[in-house]
């Protein structure tokens, strides 16, 4: 029987400004996976996200097995200052996607942001942790089936990071979503990922974290300094 795939990628190749960013990449993702993409900077992780979301041109095949599938996306480094220049409130921003006040409050509550006060604030005036939660909530609006998180804890302190990741894991468990996430946190990969795709200059590897994340591989991905991360776990 055909397994329950949600995405099939075959011979994906992305060339941006004459530079080959992704070459001949093939992999598949099943429904309800917590799929983590690992790799050093410049390996093409964000580019892969953008190609999967249809934001940039690519060659090869990207097939979502369902038509008009709904995505939620948290881009890397969306900056608070972009919002500060505009007289926009959190409520306004959420209204772009959802008109029901009730659903807006419910979503904000689910990411730990509560009260009329938050709704009236400019997103640029939130703390970095609140801002990231607000964006996660925005990605969750409209009941998406697939969520893309590109380094969701950029700019957040260690305590905050933990809560963001456990929040995402909770949503994944409760709502039966498929999550694709880029992160450098090896601990998170071990704890949450159902499957890992590593991208590095000389190739790729894929599989469940405990099978493929060998010290040798991590050294290949990140160099020597990562070793103690593994022992920590």
């Amino acid at each position: 029987m055909e397994e329950d795939f949600i995405l099939k990628v075959k011979n994906l190749r992305v060339i941006l400004d004459g530079e080959k960013i992704l070459n001949d990449l093939s992999f598949e993702i099943r429904r309800k996976e917590f799929f983590i993409i690992l790799g050093p900077n410049g390996a093409g992780k964000t580019t892969l996200f953008k190609a999967l979301l249809g934001l940039i041109p690519y060659q090869g095949e990207i097939v979502w097995t369902k038509e008009n599938i709904k995505f939620g996306y948290l881009p890397e480094r969306l900056s608070r200052s972009e919002f500060k220049k505009i007289p926009i409130s959190v409520r306004d921003f959420y209204k772009f996607k959802e008109s029901s006040e009730e659903k807006i409050s419910k979503t904000l509550r689910s990411v730990g942001l509560e009260g009329e006060e938050i709704l009236k604030k400019n997103p640029g005036d939130l703390s970095s942790g609140q801002f990231q939660r607000m964006l996660i909530g925005w990605a969750l609006l409209g009941d998406p089936e697939v969520l893309f998180f590109d380094e969701p804890t950029t700019g957040i302190d260690i305590g905050g990071e933990k809560t963001i990741y456990s929040l995402l894991h909770k949503f994944w468990q409760e709502r039966g979503l498929t999550i694709l996430m880029i992160t450098h946190e090896i601990n998170i990969v071990y704890a949450y990922a159902t499957n890992v795709l590593c991208l590095y200059k000389k190739g790729i590897c894929m599989g469940p974290p405990r099978e493929i994340l060998t010290p040798q591989l991590l050294e290949k991905l990140y160099g020597n300094e990562v070793k103690f991360y593994i022992h920590k776990h």
């Binding site: 979301l53 249809g54 995505f71 939620g72 996306y73 969306l78 972009e82 505009i86 772009f96």
Partner: peptide, 9 residues
Amino acid sequence: ISEDLAKTE
């Protein structure tokens, strides 16, 4: 605010 977010929608 973000062309990528707009396109994703």
